[in-house]
């Protein structure tokens, strides 16, 4: 399990953090328990600079072109995109439901905001996820401390700005603890307008 340390090459623009891309796809026949989730999720690459990000990202399928039940995750290096990870266990996420056709553009915009450190919430951001589903697609941003309302409000307001969301967009927050309890990512959320 030898891992190379990823760092910016000479002349590249370093990112505040290294980020790792993950991909997961649910096999419909299997239950969505923790074990099968962990088996279905794959690390696909880590980037340390703006240039490395674009090189990697340009070769990825756009999320809007994915089919079935699949997710792209972009998380700070060292944080697994799982509720149980040490960095996530007291955290939660904002959820934005997107009608079909919008996922690729919103995914790119949320990534650029995260890589560019636009959220101004210290170390609180863990990562972002785009979830491709049958009826709608879902964008999520995970933070470390679900109980910190100053942080979660600031993330919500930054999201509205960087994604240019209409004022009536429904924003939903769910703690990972609640997700663990009901074994669901997107049901029973707290809705704010």
């Amino acid at each position: 399990n030898r891992r190379k340390t990823i760092s910016p090459a000479a002349g590249e623009h370093p990112l505040q953090y290294n980020y790792t891309f993950w991909y997961s796809r649910r096999t419909p026949s299997r239950p969505a328990n923790t074990q099968s989730y962990e088996q279905n999720i794959r690390q696909i690459g880590t980037v340390a600079s703006v240039e490395q990000f674009w090189k990697f990202y340009s070769h990825l399928v756009r999320p809007g072109d994915l089919t079935g039940h699949s997710d792209f995750h972009l998380f700070k290096e060292g944080i697994k995109p799982m509720w149980e990870d040490e960095a996530n266990k007291n955290g939660g996420k904002w959820i934005i439901r997107l009608r079909k056709g919008l996922a690729s553009r919103f995914w790119e915009n949320i990534i650029l905001a995260m890589l560019g450190e636009q959220f101004m919430v210290g170390e609180e951001i863990c990562g972002v996820v785009v979830s491709i589903r049958f009826q709608e697609d879902i964008l999520s941003i995970w933070n470390k401390t679900a109980s910190d309302q100053v942080t979660t409000s600031r993330i919500r307001d930054t999201l509205r700005r960087v994604l240019n969301l209409p004022p009536n967009t429904i924003m939903e927050y769910k703690t990972h603890n609640d997700s663990l309890k009901d074994n669901s990512s997107f049901r029973n959320t707290k809705i704010t307008l």
């Binding site: 090459a9 370093p14 505040q16 240039e51 674009w54 340009s58 650029l112 905001a113 560019g116 450190e117």
Partner: peptide
């Protein structure tokens, strides 16, 4: 330390720089 902040336009401009190709 200092935080490395990039705006959207800067990041998009880097996409077309020779280093990112």
């Amino acid at each position: 330390g200092t935080r490395i902040i990039y705006d959207r336009k800067f990041l998009l401009d880097c996409r077309t720089s020779p280093l990112a190709r």
